[in-house]
Amino acid sequence: MTLTTKAPSAGPVRRGGGVRGVRPAAAPDRTPRPGSLYILPAALFFAVFAVGPVIGVGVLSFMEWNGLGDPRFAGTANWERFLGSGAIWDATGRTLLLTGACWVVQTPISLAIGVWSAGRQRNRAVLSAVYFLPLLLSSAAIALGWKAILDPNFGAAKALGPLIGYSDGDLLGDTQGALLCIVMVVTWQFVPFHALLYQAAARNIPASIYDAALIDGAGRATAFRYITLPQLRNTIITSSTLMIVGSLTYFETILLLTDGGPGGATHVLPFLMYTEGFRSYEMGFAATIATALVVLGTSLSLLIVRFSGFAKMRSTLEGI
């Protein structure tokens, strides 16, 4: 997990607190530089409330804790249970499936909408103002709204279900249907944000490149394939990373929309972590699931980064 990055400023790394108070001189390399003091608060804060808990998750995964007493050392019991549990493997598979499905569905849609709405035409501007409306609602609001819409008796599912093969509107109550609903709701919720990223990036592609291509007789599809896509490469990486790490926030959607049901059909790792920790009070085991999540999230992100080229990674991540 070594993510080597170049130090932001070249030159020898000086220990200590920089050069505060040194009289400025004309030579450029003598410019006063901020010392550790500037980063110390953020670093300390992050260490206590983010790095600490991440380490804590790992430590707790070797403990037993029911929330009532002190955590007690439990050896590898949690991990044995984790590796031996069919439910966990199912949930892991489902988590990856859901992450993958959401990525596959969202990326083309947001890419298309982003590029399309980057055009300066008046109608596009008006429409994209509408497209971004779901951005205004929180996950909780969206999940509850959709839950009502997906009600098979009084909501819209009765009418919409038959269109996709659920004649009685039993979408949320069906094993596959429930997963489909989550992909649908997540797409509805997050496409606007990713489209926004693509829109901004597409607007930064110099028009001269397209003009040159037009002169060469390239069609619209060709231009998209050979100009737009390569130019958006970094944004695709950024958006994908955000999507994949963000896929863990689907937890709220699942909790509110299906509560893991029907019959565990939407049990994903974050949801199991929550129920083990705060419904079954098996905090140690919940921490084991959480550790797996941290490892999964980090390695997936690193995988994208590596997959997409090491040098690119730096500029992308730094550009975020």
Partner: peptide
């Protein structure tokens, strides 16, 4: 019924009885 797995208690089952469904 066929779609009971999607039905909520308060927004679904109770009105179903009251509305004669």
């Amino acid at each position: 019924g066929t779609n009971f797995s999607s039905v909520q208690y308060q927004t679904g089952a109770s009105p179903l009885l009251a509305k004669g469904k």
